[in-house]
Write a protein that binds this DNA or RNA. Structure first.
Lengths: 232, 232
DNA sequence: CGAAAGATTGATTGCTCTCAACTTTAGTGG
DNA sequence: CCACTAAAGTTGAGAGCAATCAATCTTTCG
């Protein structure tokens, strides 16, 4: 796949102008960001950043797919962000410089735009709207994680699975290229359980599936009363 | 208890200078904050803010104890912040103005300092260090929620209970004035389960308890290998 | 072709939730 | 100040969900 891909200033500015959390800034701001951003390619499965590693850059997905997840001591993994083009993957690190507990890995070959953290925060402080957006997104993350905790407490696995499928369908469309393992890591359960329930959903005609792929047929059936999509 | 309590400018500035997330600011900044802050008292069980309610103020606990929690549709509650004096209870709202899903209630009679949201953010934008601190705290919240999700996935209730007790002990000291219901809401489980396991811990001499109170005797015993305290 | 990753399905176990009954304690109003 | 009530604590029994263990099969890829 395309490696060492570089982008023109205009192209970079355009990416920023469409990026999640970057709405509402002046064109000058996009140009400013573009000027200090470099591109960096990662191949499938490459680690973008690891836990306990001080943060040096701000990263934004330009192409591909990036998984941000937390590993437990026992090696279990919880995925809490699947970042598509236009999504930033580390909002906090650039400001604090401190290590977090997250791991970011390229799910497919991916292209990122990367800004030296100081340069990024310097720029951010000049554009309060960006700060506001960032804080708003962090708020969404917190709300989302908390609602997942609630789900773990009171909801069955089927429900959590449906919610994940519903959310993925909103974000990626009806064709989902994910394995049962990945769905399990999103739902907070085991592969076997996911497989079983996916089986049930298939029997009911809600989904179809083949190796490494799930196709959502009847998205409405995934929607339990009062369900709302979570942030991924 | 003391109601309608007002504070002098100096007192308010002093509270800010010791507040969580407000370290490292200039004295001028503390004075500035003090100048725009008002105090407001809440009696036990009074609601400070509710979900779906646009945010109008920034709030900081001066005295008392405030619970910030999320309710599920079924009425279950998860507590994710127990704010003691010096802790802010809504970091996101002031910036976005948007409603969140959280409820804040006074656990005891409490005194808050409150700043009109626009005034607060205006001030914050003039002090980048404050913004950085706030973003850092939001990062901690996210990490903490995510590690709770991991705990829900792979850890048993006893473990989660121990972790909560350990954390509460760090924050409040060995005497914990909480009912089993409240501990359950912190651990993400039921009252009955908590009561059972508290019983076991008492038998082992790790804690003592009486109505509405738990005393930690052997804090080390709460510390499983690799356990780390969560943010509350 | 062999190996590794993924998908399936069955059997079993066990944790914890639920339901339920009962006791103790604290608080309130007559 | 007592009686009553609500809240908190306690404990037992039972059910059920999903994790675990296990065996087998399929697909992909080098």
């Amino acid at each position: 796949m395309k490696k060492n891909c570089t982008l023109s200033l205009e192209a970079k500015a355009a990416v920023f102008s469409r990026a999640v959390g970057f709405q509402g800034l002046s064109n000058a701001a996009y140009d400013e960001l573009a000027a200090i951003a470099n591109t960096k390619a990662f191949v499938k499965d490459e680690i973008i950043f690891a836990p306990e590693e001080p943060c040096r850059f701000f990263d934004l997905v330009v192409e591909g797919l990036v998984r941000v997840s937390v590993y437990s001591v026992l090696g279990k993994r919880i995925t809490y962000l699947l970042a598509v083009p236009g999504e930033p993957i580390n909002l906090v690190g650039p400001f604090t410089g401190a290590p977090r507990k997250n791991t970011a890995e390229a799910v497919k070959d991916s292209l990122l735009m990367r800004i030296e953290r100081q340069a990024f925060t310097h720029c951010a402080f000049n554009h309060p709207q960006l700060i506001t957006n960032i804080i708003g997104m962090l708020g969404n993350s917190i709300d989302s994680s908390n609602s997942r905790i609630l789900d773990m407490v009171e909801k069955k696995v089927v429900y959590r699975l449906k919610r994940i499928l519903y959310t993925l369908n909103e974000k990626f469309g009806p064709t989902l290229n994910f394995t049962a393992v990945e769905i399990a890591e999103l739902s907070g359960t085991t592969t076997e359980s996911i497989l079983r329930f996916l089986g049930h959903l298939r029997e009911k005609g809600v989904i179809e599936k083949s190796r490494g792929q799930i196709r959502v047929i009847d998205a409405d059936a995934l929607l339990d009363p009062e369900i709302d999509a979570i942030w991924l």
